[in-house]
Design a protein around this nucleic acid. Structure first.
Lengths: 217, 217
DNA sequence: AGCGAAGTGGAGACTCGTCGTCCACTTAGG
DNA sequence: CCTAAGTGGACGACGAGTCTCCACTTCGCT
C-alpha cells in the first residue's frame, strides 16, 4: 500500500520524500525524535506543507525512518556476520558506534514516544527480531569460541551498547567521539572472557529487553 | 545572604522549604531538571505560590538542590576514602550507583540547562572541584597499587559512570536496577588492570571534561 | 487570648513553541 | 501547452508550563 503510493510519485516529489527521510534521520539522531517538524523540513529544503503531505503526522515519519534505518543496520550486521569468521571480531565491528546503529537504538529503545510509534509496524518488527536473533547468534558463537565471558547474555551486551550510544551533551564533537571510542574499548574489555568479577543475577536475555513494554509477571 | 534569609524563616516555612528541596531531588532524578514546577510543589505538599516565594525561578531551585546534593556526595566520598584502604575498593564503592550520585551527574554533566544554572554558583563549584580532585586521587592511588589499568585517566572513569547513571527508560524498575548492576560490574572489569586491549588516544582527564563549556582552543 | 506579621495556595492570565491546514502559486511530463 | 500533481510558508488553534496575585490561614510574641 505504502509501496504503491510511493511508486506513483512524480520524480520531484519522490526526490523530496527521500530528502525528508534523510534529513529526519540526521535530525532525529541529533536532537531526538521530538525535533520540530519545521526543523526537519528546513533541513530537507522543503516547506512543512510538503512534509505533512507525505507524512500525515510525526508517527508516520518516525515509522518511515525506522524502517529505512533498521533495514540498513540489519544489512550491515548480515554483512559483518558473513565476512568475519571470529565471532568476537564480528561483535567488535557490530558495536563500533555507527550513526545508523545509534539512531536505531534511539528509536527502538530510548524515547518513549518513538518506541510506541514503531512498535506496531510489522516491517520494523521483523527487522528488529532479526537483529536480535543475530546478536544472540554472535554472543553464542563468541562464547563457544571462548572469547566472550560466559556469564553474559545478549541482553547484557545490548544494555551496554545502548548506554554507550546515547547522545552525550559535550560541546566539542571531536572530544566526545574520542571519549566514546575509549569507553567502547573499555566496555569491550569488560566483556572479554576471563573471570574478572562474578556478575550478580542471571544473564539478561533479549527477551528481558523486549518484554519491557508488556510488563510480564 | 541566602543563609541569613533562610535562618530567619518561620519554623513552618523552613519545614516547607526543606520539603520542597527533598521533593525536587526526587523529581529531578526521576524526570530530569525540566519537570514542571507544579509537580514538585505537589510532591512537596505545598502550592506553587509557596514554591515560587522561596525560589524565584527554576534556576534558583536547581542551585539549591545542587548545593545540597553535591555536599552529600562529597561527604560520602570523603568517608569512603577514609575508610577504605584499597583504592580499588574505594573506587568500586564510589561508583556504586547511588541516588545522590545519579542526581549529581544529572545536574552537573548531562542536561544543558541545569549545567548552566549551576555553573556560576561558587559553592557548588567548590564541591565539584573537590569531588574531581578526590576522583583523581583515587585513580592515581589505584594505579599505583596496580589494580586499575594504567592507561585511563580520571576523566575516562567519569565518562563511564556518567554513561551508566543516566535514566534508563525501562518500565520495570527492578529489572532496570539489576541490569545496571550487571553493567556496572562489567564496566569495572573493563577498568581492571591487565592488558586487555590498548586504548586509543590519550587518557581523558577531568580537565577535558570541565573545559567542555569554555570551548578552549 | 489577641494581634500583626509571615506565610500559604491555587485560579487564571500570559507566554511560547509547535502543530497542521489551506490555498495561491509552480512544475513535471504527457 | 495544458493540467494534474506538487509546493511552501503564513497563520490560527492549541496545550503545556510559568509565574502573579491576593483573600485567607498560621505562627509566635506579648
Amino acid at each position: 500500500m505504502a509501496a504503491e503510493s510511493e511508486a506513483r510519485l512524480r520524480t520531484d516529489a519522490r526526490r523530496n520524500r527521500d530528502q525528508i527521510i534523510a534529513a529526519a534521520k540526521v535530525a532525529f539522531t541529533e536532537f531526538g525524535p521530538d525535533v520540530p517538524m519545521e526543523e526537519i523540513a528546513r533541513r530537507a529544503g522543503v516547506g512543512v506543507g510538503t512534509l505533512y503531505r507525505r507524512f500525515p503526522d510525526r508517527e508516520a515519519l518516525i515509522r518511515a525512518v525506522a524502517r529505512d534505518n533498521f533495514g540498513a543496520v540489519v544489512a550491515d550486521a548480515r554483512a559483518v556476520l558473513a565476512e568475519e569468521h571470529s565471532a568476537w571480531q564480528a561483535l567488535v565491528r557490530l558495536l563500533g558506534r555507527s550513526r545508523s546503529l545509534r539512531l536505531t537504538i534511539q528509536l527502538a529503545v530510548l524515547s518513549e514516544g518513538a518506541r510506541a510509534a514503531v512498535k506496531d509496524d510489522p516491517i520494523t518488527q521483523r527487522y528488529r527480531d532479526e537483529l536480535m536473533a543475530m546478536l544472540e547468534e554472535i554472543v553464542r558463537r563468541a562464547q563457544r569460541e571462548g572469547s566472550l565471558r560466559a556469564d553474559v547474555g545478549a541482553g547484557d551486551v545490548a544494555v551496554l551498547v545502548s548506554l554507550l550510544l546515547r547522545r552525550v551533551p559535550v560541546d566539542s564533537e571531536v572530544l566526545a567521539e574520542s571519549m566514546l571510542d575509549r569507553a567502547l574499548v573499555l566496555i569491550l574489555d569488560g566483556l572479554r572472557a576471563d573471570p574478572g568479577s562474578p556478575l550478580p543475577g542471571r544473564p539478561v536475555t533479549t527477551r528481558d529487553l523486549t518484554d519491557q513494554a508488556t510488563r510480564s509477571p
